[in-house]
Design a protein around this nucleic acid. Structure first.
Lengths: 137, 137
DNA sequence: CACCGATATATTTTCTTAAGTATATCGGTG
DNA sequence: CACCGATATACTTAAGAAAATATATCGGTG
């Protein structure tokens, strides 16, 4: 199973466990999701969209499309880019981009904690085959 | 945007809102998710896999694949089927199927409540463009 | 015993989405 | 002023998932 940006609770046992996914939704669908925010974080780390995309094994085009979607919905640029120059160009986060990361991470952390609660409530393995729920009369 | 089985909080305003998705994961990926459980509920309602699939605008094959996946992971049948007979055949939930619905719905309700808390914490629209975060010196 | 409506299963087609490829552009630097 | 590495954008290709199609099977019923 590929990384689908879900949040898991690693309990170690072989049973089932709850997973979940969280995103902030706007007019055109997802505004901020896990993958988008990691992309922003990688851009902050590398100072480059192409390097960030490569580090996530994502095509530049896909990364650029995601950034466009975020910019449109935010109403401002989350990433400032420049072409040419010293290293051929580059990208840095705008204040809005920094804020977007902080916002999502804040709620995503809460989300992870909530999922952990779910797993605690369920215990190790709530699922058991009810083989003979009704004993034969 | 098509139904992606996510849970939303309808706040009425035009801003962003948190959405999420919850599923119970097993060895081969999803064991119980929203769509799968609705499928079980529809089978209980109609007494037929094909009718249930049609009511969800889902192909019979897709429904059948989902049921197979659930049966495999559960280690028992969630749906009892019969071919031929009075109405050509039919399907009913096994005790395990009934239990699966109850299990998922129980935690899914908790999940919905948790997402509502997230939205409450965020308020109407936490996202604002930090146009001039740093005033010009 | 042919018919019906459903399960069961394989095969093919379509659709969507992501990846891949190509190219133009920018602007410091040697 | 050619080169480089990055942004920016269009176009083509490939992969994966879902749908559509086809067919075999079952067993009670008229």
């Amino acid at each position: 199973m590929k990384d689908n940006h879900s949040v898991a609770n690693e309990t170690g046992d072989k049973g089932f466990h709850w997973r979940g996914r969280l995103w902030l939704e706007g007019e055109e669908g997802t505004f901020l999701g896990y993958g988008r925010v990691v992309l922003l974080e990688r851009i902050r780390e590398f100072g480059s969209i192409s390097q960030a995309a490569k580090s996530m094994e994502m095509s530049y085009k896909h990364a650029w499309d995601l950034l466009e979607s975020m910019n449109r919905q935010a109403g401002c640029r989350l990433v400032e880019t420049c072409r040419g120059g010293k290293h051929g160009g580059g990208a840095t986060l705008s204040p809005a981009g920094v804020k977007a990361i902080a916002l999502f991470r804040h709620y995503h952390d809460k989300f992870k904690n909530m999922l952990a609660e779910l797993d605690q409530k369920m215990g190790k393995l709530e699922w058991k085959r009810p083989d003979r729920e009704l004993p034969p009369a």
